[in-house]
Design a protein around this nucleic acid. Structure first.
Lengths: 197, 197
DNA sequence: GGACAATACATCGATGACGATGTACCGAAT
DNA sequence: ATTCGGTACATCGTCATCGATGTATTGTCC
């Protein structure tokens, strides 16, 4: 797998993640439905709990997404007379849907590896991959990304360290990012180790 | 300022950030041009260095963004005969553009506070706010957000701690998030303090 | 018994981001 | 002499997301 040379702009043209744009939402929908059938509103509550404090999901985003997945045959809906309010559409994953979820988890696009928001969503459902080796392989992709020397600020090609910056805010960015990376590296190595055992 | 109650889905309908959707890219463009006029390609290199390892910027996103900002009168372009390759358009911020940047930095939409990717972009240019009190006010919004008890996983309304989870991957999410939050809280309090002095 | 909040889903137009593709120009290597 | 890679900008169609708005039902409080 090839990593970005951060400052090499020309290589960005042909982006590596195959097709599959966006759709963190779709992953979350499939992930939650993998455990149990849910209706849209409950699904929305769970997604809001998972990622809502960072990036809220609008209703007008969720329902079209459900429709997309239904149209693709990944989930089926059964209308249930409303016991509480309006009639609910109980959503359950089809066989196809389960397969698709596992595929998305086993081979996430590069963006899901590099963007922490997306990565967390992958992690939230990675247990649904029943193959421990496949789980470890995904973790190793993240590990490789984090081991790549990278910064947010450069002097030419050389990544700048927090101590080299005058700007307290930019120094903050590097300080926080470093703490995150450190904690995640520790966890990754530990977890990959225990998956191999 | 009102914070989200994470699981209160109904309140999400009327989202708090005024208008202003998206446009992290616009902030980055304005921020880089605030220091010095640049042509598009150089701008792209800098933006790629800043956020490219997490979320690459496509050319087809950058140039329309430049056009938008130009149309809004926030930046002006001067064509320069190509000394190296094709003729360059040197971009410089207008007075309007500078004012707009400062407004964006002083009153970022809530999404820029909660989403770490966006927040880092705000931090990268926060020095351009010349008022230390205004800088501190922005940091305090982030502080308030981080002090709000929140998790990714809940038992009903109660946020779950890492230790309560069986799933090693979800435990990882909480472990990493906690390390990040801890480091950032330390830095925030320290920096807010030194800005007040 | 009427107002009101919460539940539950839907549609619409606008917009930002994207991949694909095209068009130049330049310098260096082959 | 020509190919190739880097520089520099542009357009196009597609699609996910968004805010606004609409609709209907049920339970609860006063």
């Amino acid at each position: 797998m090839t990593m970005y040379r951060i400052t090499d702009v020309s290589k960005v043209r042909c982006t590596p993640w195959v097709g599959e744009n966006a759709g963190m939402l779709e992953l979350a929908i499939l992930g939650f439905l993998y455990d149990a059938p849910l209706h849209g509103y409950e699904l929305r509550k769970r997604i809001t709990a998972l990622t809502g404090h960072v990036r809220p999901v609008a209703e007008s985003t969720l329902y079209p997404a459900i429709k997309r997945l239904e149209k693709a045959g990944l989930l089926a809906r059964a209308t249930e007379p409303g016991s509480v309010a309006a009639p609910r559409h109980v959503l359950r994953l089809t066989e196809e849907g389960g397969k698709d979820l596992r595929r998305r988890l086993a081979e996430p696009p590069q963006r899901d590896i590099t963007d922490e928001n997306r990565w967390f969503t992958v992690l939230a459902f990675l247990r649904h991959l029943d193959d421990r080796a496949a789980q470890a392989a995904v973790l190793r992709r993240r590990l490789a990304f984090l081991e790549e020397p990278a910064s947010f600020f450069y002097d030419g090609d050389r990544p700048l360290r927090a101590e080299e910056l005058d700007d307290p805010f930019r120094r903050g960015v590097l300080t926080i990012a470093r703490a995150t990376t450190r904690a995640e590296l520790t966890w990754l190595r530990e977890t990959i180790g225990s998956l191999g055992a």
